[in-house]
Simulated assay, not measured.
Amino acid sequence: MLDVIVKVSSFVLIILIGIAAARSGKFGEGASLLISRIVFNLTLPCAIVRAFESAELTPALLGLIPLGFVMNIVPFLASYLVYRRRPREELVFQQANVCGLNIGCFALSFVQAFFPATGVVATCLFDAGNSLMGTGGTWALIRSLVLGTDHDLLRDRLKVFARTLFSSVPFDCYVVLIAMGLAGAHLPEPVITLISPLADANAFLSMFMIGLMIRFTVDAQRAHELARVLAWRLACSAALTLAALFVLPFDGVARQALIVLAWAPAASTGPLYTLWAGGDDGLAGMANALTVLLGVIIMTTLVIVMGVQVM
Rank of each mutant, 00 (worst) to 15 (best):
V6W: 08
V8C: 10
V8E: 08
F11D: 02
L13Y: 10
I14N: 01
A21F: 12
A22T: 05
A22L: 04
G25L: 11
F27I: 08
S32M: 00
I35M: 03
R37G: 00
I38W: 03
I38D: 01
T43M: 01
L44A: 03
P45H: 05
P45M: 02
C46F: 13
A47G: 12
V49D: 10
L61T: 04
G63K: 00
P66F: 12
L67P: 05
M71Q: 09
N72W: 13
F76N: 06
L77V: 13
S79R: 08
E90H: 15
Q94I: 13
Q95M: 15
G100V: 05
L101S: 08
I103K: 01
I103T: 05
C105Y: 01
S109R: 03
A113K: 10
F114I: 10
P116D: 15
P116R: 15
A117D: 08
V121H: 12
C124M: 01
G129M: 02
S131M: 06
S131K: 07
S131Y: 00
S131I: 00
L132A: 04
M133C: 09
M133G: 12
T135Y: 10
G137R: 01
W139E: 06
A140F: 15
A140I: 03
A140S: 12
L141V: 09
L141R: 10
I142K: 13
I142L: 15
R143L: 14
R143A: 12
V146R: 10
L147C: 13
T149M: 13
D150L: 14
L158A: 13
V160D: 09
F161E: 06
L165H: 02
F171H: 08
F171D: 01
V176K: 03
L182G: 11
G184I: 14
L187N: 10
P188W: 12
I192N: 09
L194V: 12
L198S: 07
A199M: 05
A199C: 09
A199R: 02
A199W: 02
F208N: 03
G211A: 06
F216C: 04
T217N: 15
V218M: 14
A220T: 07
A220N: 08
A220E: 02
Q221N: 14
Q221K: 15
H224K: 15
E225C: 13
R228E: 14
R233M: 07
A238M: 05
A238C: 10
A238S: 03
L245Y: 11
V247H: 04
L248H: 08
P249C: 08
F250E: 07
L258R: 08
A264S: 14
P265R: 08
S268Q: 15
T269Y: 09
L272R: 05
Y273N: 06
A277W: 06
A277Q: 05
A277L: 08
G278F: 11
G278Q: 10
L283G: 01
L283P: 00
G285Y: 00
N288I: 11
L290D: 07
T291M: 11
L294G: 15
G295E: 12
I297F: 14
T300C: 15
T301A: 11
T301Q: 01
I304E: 02
M306Y: 12
V310W: 13
V310H: 12
M311H: 11
M311N: 15
